[in-house]
Computed example of a mutant assay.
Amino acid sequence: MNYNQLGNSAVQVSDISFGCMSLGTDHTANAALLHRALDAGITLFDTADLYNKGLNEETVGKALHGRRRQVALATKVGNQWRPDGSGWDWNPTKAYILQAAEDSLRRLQTDYIDLYQLHGGTLDDPIDETIEAFERLKEQGKIRAYGISSIRPNVIREYVRKSNIASVMMQYSLLDRRPEESCLALLHEHQISVLARGSYAQGLLLSKPAKPYLSYSAAEVQRAAEVVKQVAGSTSTPAEVAVEFVLKQPVVASAVLGIRTEQQLDDAISAALHRSLPAAELEILRRALPANHYEQHR
């Protein structure tokens, strides 16, 4: 396992991290899975107050409470559940973020969060107020670093310009190369790390039947999956190749892999022991399809 500094912060993260969103409600089973991941060297565990109405944070906190100093806990804020539970509303205000942080600290059974992330964002938000909330929490020692989870270049540029974010979580894979157009270079220039989610492109780069994805047709998706399999050959797996493609970007500090089962954890651990893709094989992957681009929020 390799470890990277998260932006300019003091937070160190494993280059493969555990996306906790899909964990079930069995605390014992979740703890076994999370502990096995930690024993294998995975140290970054990502959740959100939105997931399962806070129960996801609770199960992660319960499992990792006794090993808190060994892990980097990341969670997210901004989506406020309605009192009747019928859905959630976007709320990036300072007052809400400060209160939500207290609730997340309680559910996670910790007195600090390693990475606190805004779970979305638009240009219509009170961005200065949002940043003030994160800076206040950092001054209070309740968070070590903060970032945003966004795929919107216009929003990302605003936070790069105005804030001290350590990271941006964004979708990035062989089937979603939109961040290459402007975001990756901008973030690398400002020493802001990327946490890449969606490395498998919903499993389409692995074994799921091809279907249209973003701007790609089913035939193009099939072609990309075949190229990944070709590059993997007999010495690697498609999962390892898909993740290594993402990690070859210097700005990517960690690939966040959604894990719910033992097999998914096995795949993540295997990816952590990845071989380095030779330049020739990386070029084969890049030539599989023309890179796509963002059509909105540019």
Rank of each mutant, 00 (worst) to 15 (best):
N91H: 15
A288W: 04
L257V: 03
W88E: 11
D266W: 03
S182R: 06
P153V: 03
A219C: 11
A232C: 05
T25R: 14
A196D: 02
F45W: 03
R177H: 03
L64H: 11
Q202M: 05
S215H: 11
N91Y: 12
A40T: 09
P238A: 04
L186S: 01
A218P: 15
V228R: 06
N4Y: 12
E226I: 12
G41F: 04
A37H: 09
R107K: 13
S215D: 05
V241C: 13
A242H: 05
G19V: 02
N4M: 15
N4H: 15
V11L: 09
C20Q: 01
H119W: 09
A74H: 04
Q171I: 14
Q171L: 07
L206Q: 07
K229A: 10
A63E: 05
P250N: 08
S167K: 12
S22G: 00
K248D: 15
G203I: 01
E58N: 08
A185T: 04
Q12I: 13
I97P: 02
I131Y: 06
D26Y: 05
D125Y: 12
N164R: 12
H297D: 09
L205W: 06
D39K: 05
A31H: 09
V231D: 10
K211M: 10
T75H: 09
V243R: 01
A272T: 15
E262K: 02
E244P: 02
G258L: 02
D267W: 03
D15H: 04
N30I: 11
A279C: 10
L38P: 02
E240D: 14
A210S: 13
L257H: 04
R287T: 15
D267G: 03
R106H: 11
N164Q: 09
M169Y: 06
A166S: 14
E281G: 01
D103Q: 10
L282I: 09
I156A: 00
S86F: 13
E58T: 08
Y159L: 05
V60R: 01
Q296K: 15
W88R: 10
T130D: 01
H35S: 14
D26S: 14
G78Y: 10
I156K: 00
A101V: 07
R298P: 10
S150A: 02
S163M: 07
G198W: 08
Y146I: 02
A272C: 14
N56A: 09
Q80N: 11
A268Q: 08
P290F: 02
D46P: 07
H188S: 05
S163P: 02
I148E: 00
E220F: 08
E283V: 11
A280N: 13
M1D: 13
V77D: 03
S150T: 02
L105F: 12
H274P: 02
F45N: 00
V231K: 01
T237N: 11
A271T: 08
Y213I: 02
T93Y: 08
P212Q: 09
V256W: 05
A63R: 08
P179L: 06
I113E: 00
R67Q: 15
N164T: 05
H274K: 13
I259P: 00
A74E: 00
Q296Y: 15
E283L: 13
Q99F: 09
A253D: 03
S215R: 15
S193L: 14
Y216A: 04
R107T: 02
A100F: 11
G85F: 05
V221H: 02
H65Y: 13
G7M: 03
V11T: 06
G85R: 11
V252F: 05
L23F: 07
A196K: 04
S193P: 07
